[in-house]
Nucleic acid binder design. Structure first.
Lengths: 278, 278
DNA sequence: ATATTGTCAGAATATATATTCCATTATTTG
DNA sequence: CAAATAATGGAATATATATTCTGACAATAT
């Protein structure tokens, strides 16, 4: 079968595909117009359905779907379907931006530009994911726990340390008693023992969880200190023992995980706690 | 295979499933815990992937996925997968719900939601502004200076301290000699004096500039140490004396300035330096 | 009116995918 | 420590699914 477009590569992103379908629709045979219409009207169904289910919903034969895909220069129905799946996958993060950024980088300075843009993209994605996944009730309860505490003990090591470094600064500025358990002086355990049920602990750790952080958090939980955790999974050792826990799944660029979402949360928390105390 | 839950019907909505997995996690064998974890951490992947692709991503056998599904009383992997697909359908199909949810929250809990959204917005804006204003040449030259240094001295206080705390960690991981001048032990000046022209300094400070940071940076410049600065204005005392300087204007929410753009830059820098050294 | 080209449904086939099974390896229990 | 039990990985199998093929039909041109 010959196609008037020759063997041009088919679009891989949804928007281009959409335009292509609209443009071609006029020149298509009857059944294929019917398919085109169904595809544009029910993109979600296309993403999840099987060829058979979609065919019957659109009142055509499965083979017609394959012909339609071929007409658009795709390998087959499955290939075309991937574009619809991609659309849903990227719904949360802004697909266009990332694509645009990637295109730009490929031209001028591959090394540094790509690197920087990669980290920027990861940061943006982290923020977007977090803002769509955060449960405000959990956040509010966490704030409540910390607001009722006498002293707030801050637990974090290694990669997460900068987060509590900032919180210690912010709490200090806001005149809220706090104490870091993450310093390199080796008496963390002793300090952790000073915490009472009238205090509260805030622990931050992401996979692979720092053994020390987990140990200190657990120690405090054992002595009835209310624990709020910020971590990346329901199975994190912190999540399982915390009174409240907030999930953050940071995006990464070539193995280096972002800190943007966590940092933003760590900026909001002290302010929220201060507000709650007033 | 007999299951302690008998033949209770498995959950058909994502939230119930999530709870069920968390509840059962403890009683599950090792591999199945691993699967459980992957499922909850990467729900989107589960929705679209094939058993084979998911299995390899989670580092288990496809058969393990089936066993996991059976353990939860599903017919098989495909049956379980449908729940994950359903979640995505819900989430994307009615945009209205999310909007409604946002409105509701504004009534219920104006305090926390507004606060958190405000910080998120500031973070996003910072990233966007920075990504459109950054001069990649400057970044590349800064990386060059740091890559040629023997030891990298990191200068920052107060609000900027978490940034170099992260860099010290990153440089350390990348086996790049570095030294923090920002610790509270009072011998910063003495340490700064050790720097030679073969080293380099990286100073970070935003208005109002920390007197100490500025003093230390200037001291090093006087002894011919190449200085790279990250600051917020061309008139910053750091900008005027640095060999290279990168401008970052963070957005703020009710007076609290974001750290997202700076942090992202501080994640990219060490990696770029390490690449340049290779 | 007839040849030609294009379209289609449905059957046949190829391929991808999930699932089951079994031998081997861990783990528990007496 | 030995025996029993459960868990695991990998191959074999069953099933679902997409794709191709064929002949019939319809539209169009000659």
């Amino acid at each position: 079968m010959k196609n008037e477009q020759g063997d041009v590569l088919p679009p891989r992103d949804f928007e281009s595909l959409r335009s292509l379908i609209i443009e071609r629709r006029a020149a298509l045979p009857k059944r294929l117009v019917q398919v085109a219409r169904y595809f544009l009207d029910h993109p979600d169904e296309i993403a999840f359905g099987t060829a058979a289910s979609i065919a019957s919903a659109a009142a055509v034969q499965p083979s017609t779907l394959v012909r339609f895909a071929h007409q658009l220069n795709y390998d087959g129905f499955s290939d075309l379907q991937k574009v619809f799946q991609g659309r849903l996958r990227e719904r949360t993060s802004n697909y266009d931006d990332r694509l645009k950024a990637l295109k730009n980088t490929k031209q001028d300075k591959p090394e540094e530009t790509q690197l920087l843009n990669g980290f920027m993209a990861a940061a943006q994605k982290s923020l977007q994911d977090f803002s769509s996944s955060i449960d405000i009730e959990t956040f509010a309860r966490s704030v409540g726990i910390l607001a009722n505490a006498d002293t707030i003990y801050l637990v974090a090591k290694r990669r997460s340390y900068p987060l509590i470094a900032h919180m210690a600064y912010a709490f200090g500025k806001l005149r809220i008693k706090n104490c870091i358990i993450g310093s390199p002086n080796g008496i963390d355990a002793e300090i952790a023992e000073l915490a009472t049920p009238r205090d509260a602990a805030l622990a931050i750790s992401f996979s692979p969880y720092s053994a020390d952080s987990v140990a200190h958090a657990q120690m405090m939980v054992r002595t009835q200190v209310p624990l709020v955790a910020i971590t990346d999974s329901a199975f994190s050792p912190l999540a399982v023992c915390a009174r409240e826990w907030i999930e953050i799944a940071e995006a990464d660029y070539s193995g280096f995980r972002s800190l943007s979402a966590s940092m933003t949360l760590c900026m909001a928390l002290p302010v929220a706690v201060a507000e709650a105390r007033r």
